[in-house]
Amino acid sequence: MKLELKGFTLVELMVTVAVAAILLTVGVPSLTSLYEGHRANSNISKIHSSIQFARSQAVSYGSRVSVCPFNGTSCDTNWTKGFSVFIDNGTLGTLDTTNGIQDTILRTVDSFDSEDFITSSLSRYTFNADGLMNLSQTGNIIYCPGEKTNPDSKGFTIGVSGRISTIETSVTCQ
């Protein structure tokens, strides 16, 4: 009686591993670019919707609403660590608890990937009760996944009227 063994030979296994390694070597850079593009779209959309939310809440509450990278007591400049949207009842850009007036945090966005870059021409965006920006200048926010010159970088401009426009040209975080 002949015993029949089932399985793979060493040569078959080595060929399979070699083919898998070649496919991974070719495919991983493409997947990384795809992932960074998706991450850029997702995160710039998150920032964009938070700015729109701040403007609509300013009109709804009839109050000044600010968006800034909030470090617990005041506005910071590092957008990568996350940011907050809050009703700004006190001193502009600080969480004020004096005179019984408490600024109310409406939304908090957690930090982004530590390798990403977010640049903003303004450290704080404040909308008045009429939905217009508090400052007489426009601002822009640019998100760059992974490196400052990534071709998947996205950005938008916020006009004095509070209108948000996507930046159509190529953008970098420099």
Rank of each mutant, 00 (worst) to 15 (best):
K2T: 08
K2C: 06
E4R: 15
E4A: 03
L5C: 12
K6E: 05
G7T: 11
L13R: 05
L13G: 02
M14C: 04
M14W: 12
T16R: 14
V19W: 00
V19L: 05
A21N: 04
I22M: 12
V28N: 13
E36W: 11
G37W: 05
G37E: 09
H38A: 07
I44L: 03
A54R: 04
A58L: 07
S60V: 15
Y61P: 10
G62T: 07
V65E: 01
P69R: 06
P69W: 04
F70V: 04
N71K: 11
G72N: 00
T73G: 07
C75M: 09
D76K: 12
T80R: 15
K81F: 09
F83G: 02
G90C: 03
D96H: 10
N99H: 10
G100S: 05
G100W: 06
D110V: 09
D110I: 02
D110S: 10
F117I: 07
I118Y: 08
T119W: 11
L122Y: 08
R124A: 03
Y125A: 08
T126D: 02
T126G: 07
G131W: 09
G139W: 12
P145D: 11
K148A: 10
D152C: 00
G155Y: 13
F156I: 06
G159Y: 15
S170R: 15
V171D: 06
T172R: 03
